[in-house]
């Protein structure tokens, strides 16, 4: 039983930390703000979730377990909300994403915003 717990939690933790690490790399590598946000989203959801689940498995105390659940819920609730708000703010303040298909649209928007 102990072995199972250790192994499974180890698995979750490893995957979670790998995901987080990947998110960090993505944060550095991606070209613009919006794409970086996706990378951050990875860490926020599955990365954090995996790690917390890993911890839940090894927790011996109900109290600790319930708190970990709370942390997880909070992360899941807050993570996307902040991402969304951030993206919205950026978008509304005129920061245009680099996209493949909307170069023209992007230009049009810029010209229109420059002379309101």
């Amino acid at each position: 039983m102990d072995i199972i717990i250790t192994i499974s939690s180890g698995f979750f933790l490893l995957v979670g930390s790998f995901l987080c690490f990947s998110g960090g790399i993505g944060l550095l590598r991606f070209p613009d703000f919006y794409t970086r946000m996706h990378a951050a989203g990875v860490t926020d959801t599955l990365g954090a979730g995996m790690i917390l689940i890993g911890l839940m498995i090894i927790s011996t105390d109900l109290l600790v377990f319930s708190k970990l659940v709370l942390v997880l819920l909070l992360t899941l609730l807050i993570g996307p909300t902040t991402s969304h708000v951030l993206a919205k703010a950026a978008y509304h303040n005129g920061l245009m994403p680099k996209t493949l298909n909307n170069h023209e649209k992007n230009n049009a928007k810029e010209t229109s915003s420059s002379n309101p």
Partner: peptide, 12 residues
């Protein structure tokens, strides 16, 4: 404006 925030905040 921020529908999402409003609801989340109300919950929190």
């Amino acid at each position: 404006q921020h529908l999402v925030i409003r609801i989340v905040a109300k919950m929190l």
